[in-house]
Design a protein around this nucleic acid. Structure first.
Length: 212
DNA sequence: CGTCTGATTACG
DNA sequence: GTAATCAGACGG
């Protein structure tokens, strides 16, 4: 059992944290703080919305066909690594690989509540700074937005998420199961039966959750 | 090699 | 409501 160091954000999640059943991991990630210590500066945000993707019986998952490809292979590896994919010709999305080695499952980070480095986030998002408090949420309230705000792209593909410069920190206060809402995932209408699975999880009432 | 399309976003 | 924009996946 590794012991990651304390910092201003608390204690970093260690490698073992990611070795838990996928839905449990998805729920456990809510409330943690994702920190990217990039050369140009540090950005951080609290995870407020996630979705889980499972290969078996989940037509929405990139791993559905069961065969690793150049894009998806990290999804089939051991848990705790970053699966980053490029979508719609212009956006990147960040996932946490879940499930044991050989099983293609992952958790998409869909929204963050900015914690630190908002000015750098705004710069990366090509937004003016300072910005009205009401618009802060638009920095990170969507999977493509938060990846851009944190400076995550294909360069981070396969990175371990328990060590710097990109890692998670333990949630300040544990979330009660009643503080977590669940519902269908966003924009997967093509996935048939799987489109109805309640595999999107978010912190109840949190204003930084995406619209979808 | 050609074609289709998407785990999204911004803008009208 | 819809255009933007391209890598990945797949069929031929």
């Amino acid at each position: 059992m590794s012991q990651n160091p304390l910092s201003q954000w608390g204690r970093a999640l260690d490698r073992d944290f990611f070795h838990q059943e996928t839905e449990a991991l998805a729920r456990a990630l809510l409330g943690t703080v994702l920190v990217h210590e990039a050369p140009e500066g540090v950005t951080a945000g609290r995870v407020v919305e996630v979705e889980m993707y499972r290969g078996v019986n989940d037509r929405a998952a990139h791993s559905y066909r069961g065969v690793p490809t150049e894009r998806t292979h990290v999804m089939f590896g051991p848990p705790g690594y970053a699966y980053v994919y490029f979508i719609y010709g212009m956006h990147y999305c960040l996932n946490v690989v879940a499930a044991p080695d050989g099983v293609g499952e992952a958790i998409l980070i869909r929204a963050l509540e900015p914690v630190s480095g908002m000015e750098l986030m705004a710069e990366r998002r090509h937004m003016l700074w300072p910005m009205p408090p009401r618009l802060i949420r638009t920095l990170t309230n969507g999977p493509g937005k938060l990846a851009q705000a944190l400076g995550v792209s294909k360069a981070q593909y396969g990175w371990p998420l328990w060590s710097p410069p990109l890692r998670f920190y333990v949630a300040e206060s544990p979330l009660s199961k009643w503080a977590i809402r669940e519902g269908p995932r966003i924009n997967i209408g093509y996935a048939g039966e799987a489109a109805h699975y309640p595999w999107r999880f978010w912190i109840a009432g949190n204003p930084f959750v995406s619209r979808g």
